[in-house]
Simulated assay, not measured.
Amino acid sequence: MTVLRGELTIRQSRALIRTFKQMKDFIIENQYFIGSKELVQIAIQTNKNTNDIAKINDKISTLATKEDLKKAI
């Protein structure tokens, strides 16, 4: 995401950084209360989030490519 320039990319990058920081802080603050079942749920959700982010990146790349083509024409 940081390779691309644009308002959508900047907002997405900032949101992603905030989300990961919140997740990290939550896990650190509650590490003694989190059992193996919860860790599995966190891992599943993290995997889903990673897939969602990949889809967003693909869309952003496609949009960037279209913009590059428009500029070239």
Rank of each mutant, 00 (worst) to 15 (best):
S61K: 07
D25I: 01
E38W: 08
K37E: 09
F20T: 11
T19C: 02
I73C: 14
T46L: 05
R18M: 05
L69F: 01
Q41V: 07
T9P: 00
L16R: 13
S13K: 08
E38F: 04
I10M: 07
F26N: 12
F26C: 12
S61R: 13
E7I: 07
E38Y: 03
E67L: 02
K66C: 05
Y32A: 12
F20S: 12
K21V: 05
N49H: 10
D25Y: 02
R11F: 01
F33E: 08
L8R: 14
E7K: 10
D52M: 03
A43Q: 12
N57I: 08
M23N: 14
N30C: 00
N49Q: 10
T2S: 15
D58I: 09
I34F: 05
A54K: 12
T2W: 10
E29T: 02
K24I: 08
I56T: 09
G6M: 00
S61E: 09
N30A: 01
I73S: 15
Q31D: 12
N57C: 11
D68P: 08
E29H: 05
K37F: 02
I34Y: 04
K66R: 12
S36L: 05
N51P: 00
L16N: 15
L8W: 00
I56K: 11
S36A: 12
I27W: 00
S13E: 08
V40A: 07
I73Y: 15
V3R: 07
F26R: 10
F33A: 08
I10N: 11
F26V: 04
I42W: 00
S61C: 08
G6H: 01
G35D: 15
I60R: 04
I17Y: 04
R14H: 03
L69T: 10
T19Q: 12
S36C: 02
L4Y: 03
I27R: 01
K21A: 09
T9G: 03
Y32I: 13
T2Y: 08
L16H: 10
R14C: 03
T46E: 11
L63V: 04
L16P: 06
I44F: 05
T19L: 07
L69N: 10
I28Q: 15
